[in-house]
């Protein structure tokens, strides 16, 4: 992993986040290198999406620091936070398209909100973004007419509409057919390299993210259990990581929910 300060776009140091009495993240350390595709993997409910929300400043940690492009996100005022967010894009799991707008207007939304560009130029920009995700022909469609994969591609076009410095992807492959997964994988990698972005993916689709990521983090119970390149990860000594990467039903993450002794419970009489 890169150690040079200037190479790091997102630096999460010793972050703890609690929701009520439940600890979601504890002592989390993640660095995201500039210009690379970094993936945060882990089982469902382990706090992956929380990491993205912390980076975006939507929630604040109970402890620790989060730096994005040299700015400490939890300490930013509203104006500075919004200025930073204009340089971030995010593709939500559901697409999160505005269903009262059509495809074109969804992609144009952030441009219209944050610039005073003439409508003719906005049109050209939107068409270019839609062409990049292969949906220029769908610009007039309502969001209700889109398939799940198309909705995510439109969301991706919207996420890069303002040419951000980084894009965050929340479970981009979940519930998609193999062709759509392939399309989204290609788009994430190609857009990252061609637009000079930094990409952060949150996912538990091991095979897919391993093929497009430069660096991987595996987190469990709110902590990083392994990090490295995809090759390093496959050769990890950690039994937990091997269980996760190979999808084994039993191992350090037990198949059985904690319970009393099986025989004892069966033989028990009232």
């Amino acid at each position: 992993m890169p150690e040079q300060k200037e190479d790091i776009l997102v630096d999460i140091k010793d972050v703890t986040f609690r929701h009520g009495t439940r600890t979601i993240l504890e002592g989390l350390n993640i660095t995201v290198p500039r210009g690379k595709v970094t993936t945060i993997m882990g089982p469902s409910g382990t706090g992956k999406t929380t990491v993205l929300r912390l980076i975006g400043g939507q929630i604040k940690p109970n402890k620790g620091t989060i730096f994005v492009d040299g700015k400490e996100v939890p300490k930013l005022g509203r104006g500075d936070l919004y200025a930073l967010r204009k340089r971030m894009g995010m593709m939500f799991q559901s697409g999160a398209l505005f269903n009262d707008l059509n495809v074109f207007d969804n992609v144009a939304f952030p441009i219209r909100e944050h610039t005073k560009l003439p409508e003719s130029l906005i049109r050209d920009l939107v068409l270019m973004k839609l062409e990049a995700v292969g949906l220029r022909g769908a610009k007039e469609l309502r969001t209700s007419e889109l398939s799940g994969g198309m909705a995510r591609r439109v969301a991706l076009a919207r996420a890069v509409a303002l040419d951000p410095m980084m894009v965050m992807y929340d479970e981009p492959f979940t519930g998609q057919d193999p062709i759509t997964v392939g399309v989204i994988m290609k788009l994430i990698r190609v857009l990252n390299d061609s637009l000079g972005l930094t990409s952060i993916i949150v996912s538990h689709d091991v095979q897919e993210v391993a093929r497009i990521s430069d660096y991987l983090y595996v987190i469990s119970d709110g902590k990083v259990v392994e990090k490295g390149t995809p090759t390093q990860m496959w050769h990890s000594d950690s039994k937990w990581v091997q269980q996760f990467l190979n999808g084994l039903p039993d191992g350090p993450a037990a198949f059985h929910y904690p319970a009393r002794d099986y025989v004892e419970e069966l033989l028990e009489r009232d």
């Binding site: 204009k86 559901s94 999160a96 505005f98 952030p110 909100e113 944050h114």
Partner: peptide, 14 residues
């Protein structure tokens, strides 16, 4: 539910 409000926030739209 459909994450449209968080999407607005992350796009720096109040």
């Amino acid at each position: 539910v459909t994450e449209q409000l968080p999407a607005m926030e992350i796009m720096a739209v109040d």
